[in-house]
């Protein structure tokens, strides 16, 4: 149990996927203009990551390893992720058309979100069992959500403050992201 908790805390805070591992930067910068859409994106990524972690683990253990075709890992995992993203897209379009509109192109782009493939491959490399894999996947996704929602909150405030013209938009966003990353460095000694 302590092991699972450590994995969870580690993937959310210490090894935060966005701010410590620098994975999934694209949606982190792209969909972080409003807290609401950022939360939606976080939820979508959480869903995809959690399910993808479980399914890729099963695919790895039941198909790739027994058949000795581990070299097909990337392709097989991308297949799983792509199918999941399609599913999520359908669900979101049905449940919340507004969120679908707000996420725009970044929703299908979860397919190529390196954080999702990253978590799947890291799970296998760390030699986790199924339960640990799911905990790591959910933790990584929550870490992503935490980062993107915090970032969106900061960016919402930035919109209202007087930023020098040269820094308006992405420059100041990147500086903010850098400062957040340094702040998250403080969790390094936690474990």
């Amino acid at each position: 149990m302590t092991g699972l908790l450590i994995i969870l805390v580690s993937s959310i805070l210490v090894n935060n996927f966005v701010l410590a591992r620098f994975l999934g930067i694209c949606p982190f910068l792209g969909v972080s203009k409003q807290v609401e859409t950022a939360t939606g994106m976080g939820m979508a990524v959480t869903f995809v990551m959690a399910i993808a972690s479980a399914i890729t683990y099963i695919v790895q253990e039941l198909i790739l390893v027994p058949l000795e075709i581990e070299y097909m890992q990337t392709i097989a995992f991308i297949l799983v992720i792509a199918a999941l993203v399609q599913l999520v897209e359908m669900i979101i379009q049905k449940v919340s058309p507004t969120l679908y509109q707000a996420l725009g192109v970044y929703l299908p782009l979860i397919t190529t979100n390196c954080a999702v493939l990253g978590v799947a491959i890291l799970n296998i490399e760390s030699g986790y069992n199924l339960l640990e894999t799911i905990f790591n996947g959910v933790g990584a996704a929550l870490g992503f959500t935490l980062a993107i929602v915090l970032f969106a909150g900061i960016r919402e405030r930035l919109e209202l403050s007087s930023v020098p013209d040269v820094l308006k938009g992405f420059p100041v966003a990147l500086i903010t992201a850098g400062l957040m990353s340094i702040a998250f460095l403080g969790f390094q000694g936690l474990l």
Binding site: I63, I75, L79, V80, A83, M90
Partner: peptide, 21 residues
């Protein structure tokens, strides 16, 4: 084996998505 396994997975996911749609 790779062709069968990956093709099978593709078919499975494809069928699932068709149903979901």
């Amino acid at each position: 084996w790779p062709v069968i396994s990956l093709g099978g997975m593709g078919l499975l996911f494809g069928g699932g998505l068709a149903y979901a749609s």
